[in-house]
Computed example of a mutant assay.
Amino acid sequence: MKTIARWALAGAMVFAGLSHLFWARKEFQAQVPDLVTDTLPIDRDGVVVASGAVEMMLGAALVVLPKERRRIGVILAAFFVAIFPGNLDQALKKRDGFRLDSDTARWRRLLFQPVLVAWALWSTRD
């Protein structure tokens, strides 16, 4: 069961990473907090491209580095925690993206983040 969950997570991460680079690039920009672009020398598109690359690498690593899966699971869980402020910023600033066009939808999405963290940790444990 954990193997199936891990492979599904890996596929979802690669898919999400590709979507950052191609068809949903604009949508993901709604999740980049202003603080990031105000503080760092990078624009929203750069953040989206970089995070997409990280997602693809983490997804691939879940499959091709089986001896490191526990470590990758922790890194992936930390990544999900790190992107949470972007999701929160989207909700607070009422930015539409990914059909999250209501307060209810944006806040409901935040509840899914702990599920992703738990999925990453659980599926990579022996």
Rank of each mutant, 00 (worst) to 15 (best):
E55N: 06
L76S: 09
I75L: 15
A61Y: 02
A91N: 10
G97F: 11
L65V: 04
M57D: 01
L65K: 09
A105R: 15
K93Q: 13
R71P: 00
L92I: 14
R71S: 13
K94Q: 15
V54F: 10
A82E: 08
M57A: 15
D96E: 15
F98K: 03
I72C: 04
L58C: 06
F80R: 06
S102K: 08
A82D: 08
K67Q: 12
Q90T: 06
A53Y: 01
G59T: 05
G86C: 06
D89E: 11
G52A: 09
P66I: 03
M56W: 00
F80D: 02
A82Q: 04
M56T: 04
R69I: 08
P66K: 04
L76Y: 00
A77Y: 09
V63F: 10
L62H: 08
L62Q: 04
L100K: 01
E55L: 15
E55V: 02
F80V: 07
A53N: 03
E55S: 09
L100R: 09
V81T: 09
A77E: 05
G59C: 07
L88E: 08
L76C: 06
S102Q: 11
A78E: 10
R106F: 06
G86M: 01
V63K: 05
D103L: 11
W107M: 10
K94I: 07
N87T: 07
R70C: 06
R106D: 07
G73Q: 08
F79I: 09
V74M: 10
A105D: 13
L62C: 06
R69Q: 13
A91C: 12
R70V: 11
L65F: 15
M56K: 00
I75H: 05
V64P: 01
A82I: 09
M56V: 08
M57R: 04
T104E: 12
D89P: 00
G52S: 02
G52N: 01
G86H: 03
R71A: 15
L100D: 01
R70Y: 10
K93R: 15
D89M: 08
V54T: 13
A105C: 08
I72A: 02
R71C: 10
L65D: 00
L65S: 09
R106G: 04
P66D: 06
I72G: 03
G86Y: 02
R99W: 14
F80T: 03
D101F: 07
R71K: 14
L62E: 05
A61E: 00
R70P: 05
A91Y: 13
V63Y: 04
R71E: 11
W107Q: 05
G86T: 04
G97C: 12
K67T: 12
V74F: 07
G97D: 11
A91D: 10
A60K: 03
F84R: 02
D96N: 15
